[in-house]
Nucleic acid binder design. Sequence first.
DNA 1: CTAGGGTTAG
Length: 644
Amino acid sequence: MLKQCVKKKSLPQRGQPPSTSTVEFFRIPASPAAPTAPWNTRLRELSKLSRFPEALALYRQMLRSGASPNTFTFPFALKSCGSLSLPASGAQLHGHVLKAGCEAEPFVLTSLISMYSQCSLIDDARKVFDHCPQSRHLTVCYNALLSGYTSNSRFSDALSLFCRMREMGVLVNAVTMLGLIPVCSLPVHLGVGMCLHCCSVKLGLGCESSVGNCLLTMYVKCGSVEDARVLFDSISCKGLITWNAMISGYAQHGLASHVLDLYREMKSCGIRPDSVTLVGVLSSCSHLGAYHIGCQVERQIELSGFNSNPFLNNALINMYARCGKLAKARAVFDAMVEKTVVSWTAIIGGYGMHGQGELAVELFEEMLQAGIRPDGAAFVSVLSACSHAGLTDEGLKYFYAMEKKYLLQPGPEHYSCMVDLLGRAGQLQKALDLIHTMRVRPDGAVWGALLGACKIHKNVEFAELAFERVIELEPANIGYYVLLSNTYNEANNMDGILRVRVMMRERKLKKEPGCSYIEHGGKVHLFLAGDRGHPQTIEIYRMLNELEDWLKEIYNLDKNYLERRDDERLSGMGVHSEKLAIVFALLNTKHGTEIVVIKNLRVCEDCHLFMKLVSKAVDRQFVIRDATRFHHFEGGVCSCKDYW
DNA sequence: CTAGGGTTAG
């Protein structure tokens, strides 16, 4: 019944005018004198507001009304087709352009070129360009085609067009460079990117702030953060976007403490951060576990009225989750009006990393119910949640559904989750079989996951096999040598341990230094083992010695602890970073406040003992958090529900 | 034609 109604309404009889009242209402008398200008004005407005579907509807209405589109109509209609990626409508519009005879108008010409580029029909864009002799002399046409090549990742075409442009003596402006520079956003293209940098300077465009910002981002995307920083320092008039580009650049490369330093510097220069700045800062807080700075940022978000920005809310969910505040993460998530797949991924990942696999799975199902299509990242978060919580069957179910139901090709990151899942469940052979069925080449993480499982289950045979593979792919990754060595240790295989040591020495690999840090006064204070760089170094070491002497007396510290302590000092390794951070906190925080120390690697037993005794002796609460694994050690006991 | 942004294991 419903079907019939719909059919009757939407399909008017052939040859008869549509009978809906809206069309009649807007109808303009069909005569050659029907004015075009009012339509154009409205069309331009809608296009400027990015209301493209409405703009196209208006264009159709305009045609029906009998008004004829002109030079000032087509650009906005074409832009709408391009933005919505509607190649068929775009081609139809092209027909209208030809009929109206305004293909040679520069504004129309560039709009046609960019429409085809946005619809991924870059060759059609080129045809338009070649077909019109006008375009050979117009900077805007080259610019349109250049940015078309860039957005369709046609590296060499973009460059040869640029060369041709220069040969023809066409004026190169800032927009040309902005269209061209982003083709060099892969490390392999860094050399060309540097040439473009020189080129910009030679052409007198080096002082254009937009070009500078664009180059800065190019260096970041090429993985050359140092070069980006050099450029950043050389820019004399840094605008908000310049600061944001550098801050996001550091954030994307995980240089979280650099982000926080730069953020402070930016504020002290009197630049007001906007939502883009805060996204970068929040993501760095997540990486560091810098909860208090994260909270400050949230207040700033409220003050600035950015509460409903989805990028910021997603970053907030992640920050709270990684700082162990799941309830807060959930509150932000629940308050979001428009939850994207990224929001769901963040909250699912949050529950997953804290061992709450059942909740993560429930949320994933809720997401599906809400009609959100999961992407590759969403599957990574649910699969890893399953593996941490021991939900082997659920994990397998999702892995198969991913390919069969959602038609997503699993990448190496999904396989490494699955190997982890099977491996933790003790099914090492199945995990190995799965690796052999992979259609993509397994990466280090896949073999690494198998190696990790071998350590849990003390399986030397499989561990040696996995190690051999993983080391081909990542020969300098110390973590894998340590894992193999630990596996031998669990199996009481001393020969194995020695072999790993020899291997590490031959390859000149040293265990990476641990570091610990503490948030204090809106700053992150970082300590390496034996660090002497902190301004309070002298006080810290003096107090540490006093403390240890005192602990020795009142608690009878065991001999081994003291021997190891002297060892660490004499061998040049230096005092463990946890101790430095703990003493720093004692010196600088009020009695009664909890001290949160964050560690990048596992906390050693002696430091645990030290913390426990200090906690008792001076009556202070400590939490040591492992920032890489989200283990929560409270009072020396691992409170994490995960069964790592 | 036009510079900066969120989620993902080990």
